[in-house]
Computed example of a mutant assay.
Amino acid sequence: MNDMLVRLVSLPDITNTEKVLKEKEQVIFRRPIAPEKSIVTQWVCKYFSSNWADEVDVAFSRIPISCFIAQRGQEIIGFSCYECTAKNFFGPTGIIEKERGKSIGKVLLIKALLALKELGYGYAIIGGVGPVEYYQKTVNAIVIDGSQVSVYQHMLKNNS
């Protein structure tokens, strides 16, 4: 998998999308707070992977917490993180399957990228990308040549 580069000064405006999701889908977007750490990390482990849960755990060690969640009522339906594995890296991110295709992921992505912009970065890296076309279309990300070998190259695999 390749890494991608995103220009942070030209991100799409998500104000209206977020408003529509709140009104029509009752979805709110926010940073979780410290007492929610185990709830969020366990949810990520259940729906995605223990590796991603480990990265979320790191997000909770930051102030402000470097994670956003999408929730409907008391249910988490998606998350996005930044600066968990490496500085200036976006990810991991995930939306539960039944909620995909509603722009929830787009809002979570851009909220995290805006947080990186607020840290002073002009560009951000999306690490180990699966859906290249999605990031190209959503934030004009470009594949970084030669990035198949990245910060994840020596990562241990969980064989259980």
Rank of each mutant, 00 (worst) to 15 (best):
V129H: 01
G120N: 06
E75D: 13
A53G: 08
E18K: 10
E83Q: 11
E23H: 00
R30I: 05
I39L: 09
S50W: 12
T41L: 08
K137M: 08
S50V: 13
A115G: 02
T85M: 13
I33L: 13
Q74F: 04
L119T: 04
A34R: 14
N51M: 14
I95M: 04
Y134M: 13
L114T: 07
G94K: 02
G122M: 07
W43V: 07
W52C: 08
I142L: 10
I69D: 06
I110Q: 03
L108R: 05
T93M: 15
G78A: 05
K37T: 03
I28Q: 09
T93R: 12
P64Y: 08
V20D: 06
K137F: 09
Y47R: 14
I144K: 01
V107C: 04
S80M: 11
K117M: 05
Q136W: 06
E118C: 04
K24A: 03
E55D: 15
E97R: 15
A86W: 12
F79V: 02
E97G: 12
G78H: 00
E55Y: 15
L109V: 06
I65K: 06
S103V: 03
A86F: 10
G105S: 03
S147V: 02
L114Q: 10
L21K: 01
S49D: 09
N88T: 01
Y121C: 03
R62N: 14
E83C: 14
